[in-house]
Each structure stands twice: as C-alpha cells, then as structure tokens.
C-alpha cells in the first residue's frame, strides 16, 4: 500500500507522518500520532464522538481522509488542558466537571471539541446556539441538559448556567 508523507500541526506541535491510501484522520490520530482522545463511535459520521478541529472548524475525523490535513492545524481534547500551561483543565473542561456533564464519557471528547469551536467563533452563545452546535454529537447517558449548561457556564466566564436558561 502506498504511503503518503504529510505534515500537520497537532495541538500546536509540528508532526510529520506517513499515511496509507484511504486511511481516515481518526485512524491516523489514534494509531499513528498516538492521540487517543478522538473516539471511534459509529465510524460513519453519525455520532460525533470523533469530532476534532481542522483549522479551527469541527470535523468528523472518521470520515475525513488523513491526507487532506496536510499542512493544516488539528486540535483535539489532548491539547485543551495542555494549552492552559501544563495540565490545568480549560474553562470548558472545568465547566463540564462542575456540571457533571459526563457519565460514561464516550461522547465527552467530541462534545468538548464541538463546544470549543462554538465558543471560539461565538463567545456568548444562546441556549439554542449551544444546542445547534452539539446537535451532531449523540449522548446516551446525560440527556444533554448538563452538557448544555456546562457550555453556557463556560461562556459566561465560569458563573452559574442559570443566566443562559430561557
């Protein structure tokens, strides 16, 4: 199988890897780059567990060809805490913890990336905008309420999520 060399930025670090023909971004990140934070859920682009940011935009890694990220910036949950200067949780991660926004945790990494992208482009989202931003991410356990509240709390600077409720 032909190998294609690509270079990309992975959570701020320059990386160069060989990718197989047809290899998807999720497989490359998990197996080649060793970043296990994007999760394999459905493998068909319908559950959102593999959501990563490509040049800041949320993208489903399981249906993205790895070779298409050559020269681009990939951000995953592994970079959220590291980006806070050595292992401190990002405000969004802390809000997830404060609101008990995870149970089994399998959807959490995808939720965090979808919400990170939302807050980057819209720092004060309405409740409906949060719902829209995570509408591609399925969660079995939480009923979404705690996740929505966590994103609203992070947006309001760490205070109560009450302000965001309609």
């Amino acid at each position: 199988m032909a190998k294609t060399p690509i270079a990309f930025t992975h959570n701020g670090d320059e990386r160069a890897v060989f990718v197989d023909d047809g290899q998807n971004l999720l497989d490359m990140l998990r197996r080649t780059a060793g970043d296990l934070t994007p999760k394999y859920g459905c493998g068909q682009g319908t559950c959102g567990a593999c959501t990563v940011l490509v040049d800041g935009a949320p993208q489903l890694a399981c249906i993205t060809l790895a070779e298409t990220v050559d020269g681009r910036r990939i951000d995953t949950v592994a970079g959220l805490a590291a980006g806070q200067g050595g292992g401190r949780l990002s405000p969004l991660q802390k809000a997830f913890m404060d609101n008990f926004a995870a149970q089994c945790g399998y959807c959490t990494d995808g939720m965090l990336m979808s919400a990170t992208a939302l807050l980057a482009r819209n720092p004060r989202p309405s409740r409906d905008e949060v719902v829209e931003a995570i509408s591609g991410n399925l969660c079995r356990c939480t009923g979404y309420e705690a996740i929505i509240n966590a994103v609203l709390q992070a947006a309001s600077g760490g205070g109560s999520a009450q302000a965001g409720r309609r």
Binding site: C42, Q44, T46, C47, V130, V131, L138, R140, E145, I148
Partner: peptide
C-alpha cells in the same frame, strides 16, 4: 444500519 435510522433524541429534542 446507522444512527441516521436508529433514532435517539438529540440535544434539540429534550
């Protein structure tokens, strides 16, 4: 065969 047809509530349904 997938989550497009095996339906579950999403964040907009709650």
């Amino acid at each position: 065969t997938d989550f497009n047809h095996y339906l579950m509530p999403g964040p907009g349904d709650i």
